[in-house]
C-alpha cells in the first residue's frame, strides 16, 4: 500500500510523516512518532484515553485518520508541560492523588485542559459531563473532579499562567 505524505504541526513543532490511508492519528502518534502518551483503551471512541486536540478541538485520536492531520495543529499530552513547569492540572492531579494506575491520566488532562480553556469556572456537574467520555476504572472519579476544580480555581486566581 502506498503511503501518504503528511505535513502537520504537533505541540508547536512542524512534523512530517508517511502513513497508510487507513491508519489512525493515534497509531501515527504512537507508532511512527514515538508519542506514546496518548493510549488506546478501546479504539472506538468510548474511553477517551487517546484524547488530543486538533485545531484546538478535543477529539479521540483513534477516530481521526493520520492523513486528516495534514495542515492541522495537533496537541498531545507531551505538550502540556512547558519545559520543567507542569501545567496546573498536572500538579493538581498529583496533589489530589487523582490517578492510581495512570493509564487514563493523559486523556483526562488533555480533556480537562480543553474544558478550562472554554469554561474557566465549571461547576462539578459541568466537569463530570465534559469528562464523561474519559473512562477511569481506578478512582471512581472523585479525586479527578476535585483536582480539576482545584486547578480551575488556581488558574482563575492567576497565580500560575497556564
Amino acid at each position: 500500500m502506498a503511503g501518504t505524505h503528511v505535513k502537520t504541526t504537533i505541540n508547536g513543532d512542524s512534523v512530517e510523516y508517511v502513513c497508510e490511508a487507513d491508519e489512525t492519528l493515534l497509531d501515527v502518534l504512537r507508532n511512527r512518532l514515538a508519542l506514546t502518551g496518548a493510549k488506546e483503551g478501546c479504539g472506538t471512541g468510548d474511553c477517551g484515553a487517546c484524547s488530543v486536540t486538533v485545531d484546538g478541538r478535543l477529539v479521540c485520536s483513534c477516530l481521526v485518520l493520520g492523513v486528516e492531520a495534514e495542515g492541522r495543529n495537533v496537541a498531545t499530552i507531551e505538550g502540556l508541560a512547558q519545559g520543567e513547569h507542569l501545567h496546573p492540572l498536572q500538579r493538581k492531579f498529583l496533589e489530589h492523588a487523582a490517578l492510581q494506575c495512570g493509564i487514563c491520566t493523559p486523556g483526562f488532562l488533555v480533556a480537562a485542559k480543553a474544558l478550562l480553556e472554554k469554561n474557566p469556572d465549571p461547576s462539578e456537574h459541568e466537569i463530570r459531563f465534559w469528562l464523561a467520555g474519559n473512562l477511569c476504572r481506578c478512582t471512581g472519579y472523585d479525586k479527578i473532579v476535585r483536582a480539576v476544580q482545584d486547578a480551575a480555581a488556581e488558574m482563575r486566581g492567576g497565580r500560575h499562567a497556564a
Binding site: 498529583l94 490517578l99 493509564i103 491520566t105 493523559p106
Partner: peptide
C-alpha cells in the same frame, strides 16, 4: 506525591503497549 507521578501526568510512563 507519588514517585511515579510525574511520568504519569506527562505521558512519559511506559505501559504495556508503549
Amino acid at each position: 506525591l507519588r514517585p511515579d507521578g510525574l511520568d504519569k501526568v506527562t505521558g512519559r510512563a511506559r505501559f504495556g503497549a508503549d
